[in-house]
């Protein structure tokens, strides 16, 4: 599903002395099949933006009637027009999975099975048969890398931190959403736990979650995995670029107080030493280009 955003504005506590404009005229498009990254500081508007994508924050209807500066707000996810009141938000949410920060905090059921099945039952039209639920839960647990037979009857609260998080993700993707939005899915995990989450996202991207939108602070992960990246700053979108172009602007990103990947930092330092490396900022490409230089070859 293609996500189209045009002139999106959002104000918290509108018409009160505490009003804060969280989004200012945000416009860009996320293509079907992308592994799309969103970066920016806490409070830059990125969380507000992603909550729009499955209708948890609605476009206020007054904006539609009275567009700002004459530009009509547009927000579409596939066939769904999110500015319309008639949109079937239930169907939208079935198709757009949302994994919040620290998703393990939303676990509630007595067993892993019941927790994962929760979303599936909610979104099923009518009452699903036992076999249907079971196969959906089995499949979801499988793809997040947990063994169905071992964990299904275990209380989710008895699992380790990394396992809890994977159960929570299974509980979101069990409905086969085409778009999966994740807000810092690896936050707070140990390094191996982080690697596992990234591998899991790639498995999902290769199967039913065709479009992945991930909010992250880890620039190395962004550089390694994303097709394109949107940079949020103070409610606006500064850049929408693939990593290989985005990190050409490393100095500017650093001046915005954002981080850049290690490879980009090294490229900047090497530039100071008179060595120019033109890579796409993935570790492998950086190594390839540097090693090629070392062997007396030239870098293209």
């Amino acid at each position: 599903m293609r996500i189209v955003v045009n002139h999106l504005n959002y104000i918290y506590n509108d018409r009160s002395p505490f009003a804060v404009q969280a989004l200012k005229d945000v416009s860009f498009t996320i293509e079907h099949g992308e592994f799309f990254g969103i970066i920016g500081h806490t409070g830059s508007g990125k969380s507000t933006f992603v909550q729009h994508l499955n209708g948890l924050i609605r476009v206020p209807s007054s904006l539609k009637r009275k567009p700002i500066k004459g530009d009509m707000t547009e927000l579409r996810v596939g066939e769904f027009d999110l500015t319309s009141k008639k949109t079937d938000f239930r169907a939208l949410r079935r198709n757009v999975g949302m994994v919040f920060q620290y998703p393990e905090n939303q676990l509630f059921a007595e067993t892993v099975f019941e927790d994962v099945a929760f979303g599936y039952r909610n979104f099923f039209d009518g009452k699903p048969e036992k076999g249907q639920v079971e196969s959906a839960v089995r499949e979801a647990l499988g793809i997040v890398g947990l063994d169905y037979e071992t964990v299904k009857n275990v209380s989710p609260f008895d699992l380790s931190g990394g396992q809890k998080r994977r159960v929570a993700i299974a509980g979101v993707i069990v409905t086969h959403p085409e778009v999966l939005v994740l807000d810092e899915p690896a936050a707070g995990l140990d390094p191996l736990g982080k690697q596992e989450i990234m591998r899991l996202l790639h498995r999902l991207h290769g199967s039913w979650c065709k479009t992945i939108v991930v909010v992250s602070h880890d620039m190395d992960e962004i550089a390694e995995n994303c097709t394109r990246v949107a940079v949020f700053a103070e409610g606006t979108v500064k850049y929408v670029l693939p990593p290989r172009e985005l990190f050409h602007h490393s100095e500017e990103l650093l001046s915005l107080g954002l981080d850049v990947p290690l490879t980009a930092k090294l490229c900047l330092e090497l530039e100071k030493q008179g060595v120019h490396i033109d890579c796409d900022y993935t570790t492998e490409d950086f190594l390839r280009k540097v090693l090629a230089l070392g062997k007396g070859g030239t870098v293209c």
């Binding site: 090294l266 330092e269 570790t283 230089l293």
Partner: peptide, 28 residues
């Protein structure tokens, strides 16, 4: 580690500036 395996002799530094200098002196 990967650079050393590839034949660029850098020490096991953990500082970005130092590593960049070492790479620069190896490749130019």
């Amino acid at each position: 580690r990967r650079l050393r395996e590839g034949g660029i002799r850098v020490s096991d530094t953990l500082d970005i500036g130092t590593l960049a200098k070492e790479i620069a002196s190896c490749v130019s």
